[in-house]
Design a protein around this nucleic acid. Structure first.
Length: 452
RNA sequence: GGCGACGUAGCCAAGUGGUCCAAGGCGGAGGUCUGCAAAACCUCUAUUCGGCGGUUCGAAUCCGCCCGUCGCCUCCA
């Protein structure tokens, strides 16, 4: 498949370094508040990438961090009067819960920054030894000007960035572009001992340390939102490549476009967000997933309740195509649709096009069924494609305790219709509909389902 | 200010030189079926791709300018 790489700014044929195994690192969250649907969107995209790579026969080793110590966590914990660990654990639990509900496959390892401190210190020490970093009053900074390719990922020139950079008074940096690898702790802040005194890791170093530790010196795919390109990923490259002497650290940089709410990016710091929890209260995981996948992962997307809601109708259409039939005759052939699907996915994960193939197959199944042809092969193909996208089209498990009562009403209505008492029959149907039960009459009898 | 991305039907959204007088979904209109609905099926719903120029035999697709929107440059998926 072809995958777009931010660093080279082009689509390139993807193949892992190591034969059948793909090493993928996706930047995780800083757990100081509930995960929002911008996170959900990003992790759904990477979930689909992973599922598709697995479909192609690769074994994927997927690592995703939690940056469970930083300024925001310290501030929020203080505000809530709890410990930083307690705060982070609370939001990590929230993350797991909502992402599980969204059907996102779990990573192989979710390393925590606070647990990787010894390894982080090792990396920093090495960078200091190599002169890529320097200690300054208990802090340690990365000497950006010593890393020649700095800016290669974000396509910026260091001197242009420095020209506009502000220099805060009292900075301990040699140069405004330098960034912290280690921060000395202030009074009352959590700290870990280090060769430079008590402190905590800077923001970017944990990802370098974790990817090195769990995936090695070179990885195949490094993912995250486009807002991480600079400075986070740029700095990761500087750290990791200076440490290993091997480039490129990540062979493909995959960045998803950002979700906007109203006129702005959805983000925790701006406060304009919808939490996953709220979204899941209102919409099914499938509707949300379909909403995200109907836009290409690299495009920005505006959150729209109207458009998420509209996905329910589309899902009903897909699900309807999977209803069993017992007709025989010519088989619906899923192959041409499967081919369109994989062609689309091979082209930098073009999920909107892949979905179009699925919807066309869906129409084909309906038409064939109308013509009395067998559709099992088509249905199998549709399910296979849906699985690759992580879309669960099979009806969810639900409480069936009301079913016998609904059956009685359906039976009653049948008798009313038989005796031409249509007003009463329609009344039953309308009242059931008001309760969320949809009836569909056909020559084969009346079917009913929840939804609609 | 610097760097980058984007602007396609009522809404969402693919398509990046001819096979596109432009996929797919939602919505809408008409029809078939039905006691009526619903679902499904059939037909229709952008002579046109932000605007203006240019390159080319040929452009939504390439180039230039303009208008508009967003992102990054500071924490952020």
């Amino acid at each position: 498949m072809k995958l777009y790489d931010t660093r080279t700014a082009q689509k390139q044929e993807f193949a892992p370094l190591d034969g059948a195994a793909v090493r993928m690192y996706v930047c995780g969250i800083t757990p100081y508040s509930e995960s929002h649907i911008g996170h959900a969107m990003s992790y759904i995209y990477f979930d689909v990438l992973r599922r598709y790579l697995q479909h192609l026969g690769y074994r994927v080793r997927h690592i995703q961090n939690f940056t469970d110590i930083d300024d925001k966590i310290i501030a929020r914990a203080k505000q809530q009067g709890i410990g930083t660990v307690q705060l982070a654990q609370k939001y990590i639990a929230d993350y797991y819960e909502v992402m599980d509900r969204l059907g996102i496959l779990r990573a192989d390892v979710y390393p925590l920054a606070t647990v990787e401190i010894p390894y982080i210190i090792d990396v920093i020490e090495d960078l200091v030894e190599k002169n890529f970093a320097y200690a300054s009053e208990g802090d340690v900074y990365y000497r950006v000007e010593h890393f020649r390719p700095y800016g290669a990922l974000s396509h910026r020139k260091l001197d242009e960035m420095l020209a506009g950079a502000r220099v805060d008074p009292g900075e301990k940096k040699e140069s405004p572009g330098d960034f912290a690898l280690w921060k000395a702790s202030k009074a009352g802040e959590p700290f870990w001992p280090s060769p430079w005194g008590p402190g905590r890791p800077g923001w970017h170093i944990e990802c370098s340390a974790m990817s090195l530790r769990y995936l090695g010196t070179q990885i195949d795919i490094h993912g995250g939102g486009q807002d991480l390109i600079f400075p986070h990923h740029e700095n990761e490259i500087a750290q990791t490549e200076a440490f290993t002497g091997v480039a490129p650290f990540a062979r493909f940089w995959a960045h998803n476009g950002l979700l906007t709410l109203g006129e702005q990016k959805m983000s925790k710091s701006l406060g304009n967000l919808i939490t996953c929890r709220d979204a899941l209260d209102r919409y099914t995981p499938e509707a949300l997933r379909l909403f995200f996948l109907s836009s290409h992962y690299r495009s920005p997307l505006a959150y729209s309740e109207e458009n998420v809601t509209a996905q329910n109708r589309a899902l009903d259409r897909l699900r309807g195509a999977l209803e069993p039939t017992q007709d025989t005759g010519a088989e619906v052939d899923a192959a041409p649709f499967r081919r369109r699907f994989t062609d689309a996915m091979d082209n930098d994960l073009n999920t909107p096009q892949a979905l179009a193939a699925m919807f066309d197959l869906t129409s084909e199944i309906y038409r064939a069924r109308l013509a009395g042809q067998a559709v099992a092969a088509g249905q199998a193909g549709l399910i296979e494609m849906a699985d690759i996208l992580g879309l669960h089209l099979r009806p969810a498990k639900r409480d069936a305790s009301a079913d016998p009562f609904i059956e009685i009403l359906v039976e009653l209505r049948k008798e009313l219709r038989t005796s031409q008492q249509f007003t009463l029959a329609d009344g039953v149907r309308q009242k059931l509909q008001a309760l969320g039960v949809v009836l569909e009459d056909s020559a084969q009898g009346t079917k009913w389902k929840f939804g609609g």
